[in-house]
């Protein structure tokens, strides 16, 4: 705890966004180290598209392009898209998703600070609904840099040799489509996508995101409510099912380290614009994301639930904020 008097640093949107990008860096580095440089290409693609779309929309709306372009918010959206899309997605998937996110989800609502939906997750949801197969191919271990870049820019895809499902996807298909004898343990033992807890390598990526997230907490750019409530919501929903039927439900630890759980908890759900703003509202909002994520992963048709859960809770945010408004100081609870 600091002691008074406090020296206040001037808070600007640019500074906040740069810190968020900095906090994402460890995750990006570990991601590129484990899965190869495809993700770096995606980041460049998404960033260029985001800036171009942002500039075009600002020009069309007659807003000062320089000031809003420099705030870096489009870059954060672009990075989140690049990190949630498959590293070997064809270039037009990333470009299309990013352009949709910036143009429709952000600027049609008035731009920075007014979008009710998280733009990056809108881009992800649109693309996974439209191109489910291409959106769930992750590079197989040991795919070279040249091969990854070739895939991004249109090389033919001889499926299984070069691509692999994520752990979440492999578990779903393993459990649902094979004979009833399959259990979590046998699926995890037989498939190369799995590591110690969840996906091979994903534990380390999750750990790197966690480090970045703790930095955001330390910088007070986010509060503890959303990450804690989201991870608890996810873990506590997974726990009873796992205890009741270890063979058919993955462990809470699997869910917490797999997919985009940690990225979602610290970087996606904490978006101050589309997320809830009151302390109690944040708890409800984030716990809701965690619970819905588990249900989509366990029973739904899509590989990861973070994007849909975030969008669904975004829809509920105006109502949550309205109902959890703290009473004005000096008065009792309203009504």
């Amino acid at each position: 705890m600091n002691n008074s008097p406090f020296i206040l640093a001037p808070a600007s949107v640019t500074a906040v966004m740069l810190k968020v990008l900095g906090a994402l860096l460890p995750g990006v580095v570990v991601y590129a180290w484990i899965f190869g440089p495809g993700v770096l290409v995606q980041i460049v693609l998404a960033s260029l598209t985001a800036l171009a779309a942002e500039a075009a929309m600002l020009a069309a709306r007659g807003r000062p392009a320089g000031r809003f372009l420099a705030d870096g918010s489009a870059l954060v959206t672009a990075w989140l898209i690049a990190l949630t899309f498959p590293p070997i997605a064809p270039w037009w998937i990333t470009v299309g998703g990013t352009a949709f996110a910036i143009v429709v989800a952000k600027h049609l609502y008035g731009g920075l600070g007014q979008n009710p939906f998280n733009p990056a997750m809108v881009g992800f949801a649109v693309m996974i609904v439209a191109f489910p197969a291409l959106m769930s191919q992750w590079p197989a271990q040991g795919l070279s840099a040249a091969e990854q870049i070739g895939l991004i820019f249109g090389a033919p895809r001889p499926l299984d040799a070069i691509t692999a499902a994520t752990a979440l996807d492999a578990l779903r298909t393993g459990l649902h489509e094979s004979a009833s004898a399959a259990s979590v343990a046998t699926v995890m033992a037989s498939h190369p996508a799995f590591g110690q807890f969840a996906g091979r390598g994903w534990e380390w990526i999750a750990l790197a995101y966690l480090a970045g997230g703790l930095y955001l907490l330390q910088q007070r750019l986010i509060t503890w409510h959303i990450p804690v409530a989201l991870l608890l919501g996810l873990g506590l929903t997974a726990l009873p099912f796992w205890l009741a039927d270890t063979a058919h439900y993955a462990s809470p630890l699997f869910h917490l380290t797999a997919g985009a759980s940690v990225l979602g908890a610290f970087f996606i759900a904490t978006d101050p614009v589309s997320g809830a703003t009151t302390p109690r509202g944040k708890l409800i909002y984030a716990a809701g994301i965690g619970v819905i994520t588990w249900f989509v992963r366990a029973y739904g048709a899509y590989p990861d639930g973070i994007a849909f859960a975030t969008l669904l809770m975004n829809i509920c945010v105006p109502l949550i904020d309205m109902k959890t408004q703290p009473p004005v100081f000096g008065r009792k609870e309203r009504r």
């Binding site: 009710p116 949801a125 849909f308 859960a309």
Partner: peptide
């Protein structure tokens, strides 16, 4: 907005 809400509800597919 209704379209984007509809997109979000796609997440329940299969439940």
């Amino acid at each position: 907005t209704a379209g984007l809400m509809s997109l979000a509800f796609m997440g329940f597919a299969g439940l």
